[in-house]
């Protein structure tokens, strides 16, 4: 029993670590898509954020400069996306694909040019990374059964960026549903012409939505390379941007629901390695590939309207022409 308790605790702990970049990217996706811009470039922003964070942290030794660099790089990518599909009304999917290619290419080319290690950045020392944070009263609570263990293993001991990601979800939700900016942002994704006739700039509103998304993706990128990992490896985003996109759809373009979807996908990822070579009752051994494909399978089933009806923003993907 106690063994099972700790197993669960560790699985949930791993879930949280894996889900962190997903949450941040999903929030980015929600901001962008709620404003009417399809964003399959989450992946590219995540990757470029990760690269710049590791590069700057390694060159300057400062995690904070690394984080700022990651956010700047990711926001720049967002601005490029905006330039192509807001200013020039280009195809949003095409622009997203382009950005993902640019990120894949640039991170490796610049990485080789700067460090000459075949696209990797040097391994960061612990001072150049976000360290785990021991929360207050961990020792004091140790004597309390169950709660003490949960507090120590699951809640405490993550890096700052994990807590930032957890905070981003209610903040994103608050901005979207309780602020004037959020109201307008949701409106511009449903009916840009209505927003325009109310005298609010559709262009600027959508740019701001993309910039907010860029900030989220930048933090997620920094988490990958200077918090969760200790260096940048080529293609280290490994499809997380797409899983986040799936979580956005799964969460029906709402922050809190998308957060749960991220946790679910993270959980699947976390238990995949544990389930290998274990015979489950009734099912038998589950191939790891099936586990890693589950988020995509579930999203496809959801998208096909077999569980509820997804309701994407009405004006999504349509460039606005005055």
């Amino acid at each position: 029993m106690i063994d099972f308790f700790y197993q669960t605790l560790w699985a949930l702990d791993a879930t949280l670590r894996v889900a962190t970049p997903l949450m941040l990217c999903a929030m980015a996706g929600i901001f962008s898509e709620r404003s009417g811009i399809v964003d399959i470039s989450l992946e590219g922003k995540l990757l470029s954020g990760a690269f710049v964070a590791a590069t700057i942290a390694s060159l300057t030794g400062s995690v904070w400069l690394g984080l700022i660099g990651a956010i700047s790089a990711s926001v720049l990518m967002s601005l490029l996306h905006g330039f192509a599909c807001i200013t020039h009304r280009g195809d949003q999917v095409v622009s997203g694909v382009a950005i993902n290619f640019l990120a894949s290419g640039l991170t490796v080319i610049l990485g080789i040019a700067i460090f000459k290690r075949g696209g990797q950045t040097p391994t960061l020392s612990s001072g150049e990374r976000f360290r785990p944070i021991e929360l207050w009263f961990v020792d004091a609570l140790d004597n309390v059964p169950v709660i003490g263990a949960i507090y120590r293993e699951l809640i405490s001991g993550h890096s700052l960026l994990v807590y930032v990601a957890l905070l981003c979800v209610p903040i994103a939700s608050f901005i979207l549903y309780k602020s004037r900016f959020g109201l307008r942002l949701r409106a511009v994704g449903e009916s840009p012409i209505a927003v325009d006739s109310a005298g609010v700039s559709v262009t600027w509103l959508r740019y701001r939505a993309l910039i907010v998304g860029g900030v989220f993706c930048g933090i997620a990128g920094a988490y990958l390379s200077i918090s969760h990992g200790a260096n940048f490896v080529r293609e280290m985003s490994a499809g997380k941007g797409y899983i986040a996109l799936a979580a956005v759809i799964f969460g029906n373009w709402r922050p809190i629901r998308a957060f749960w979807a991220c946790l679910m996908f993270g959980f699947l990822d976390a238990i995949t390695s544990r389930l290998q070579d274990i015979d489950l009752p009734l099912i038998g051994e589950v191939p790891a590939q099936l586990m890693s494909a589950l988020p995509y399978i579930m999203t496809i089933i959801l998208l096909s309207g077999f569980i509820g009806r997804p309701s994407p923003p009405s004006a999504i993907g349509v460039p606005y022409k005055k």
């Binding site: 490029l80 280009g90 622009s95 382009a98 993902n100 640039l106």
Partner: peptide, 16 residues
């Protein structure tokens, strides 16, 4: 890897 960059640029400028 230069080719990835060139592809990205071509998709950007010839597409988006």
């Amino acid at each position: 890897d230069m080719v990835l960059l060139i592809q990205g640029m071509i998709i950007l400028f010839s597409g988006a």
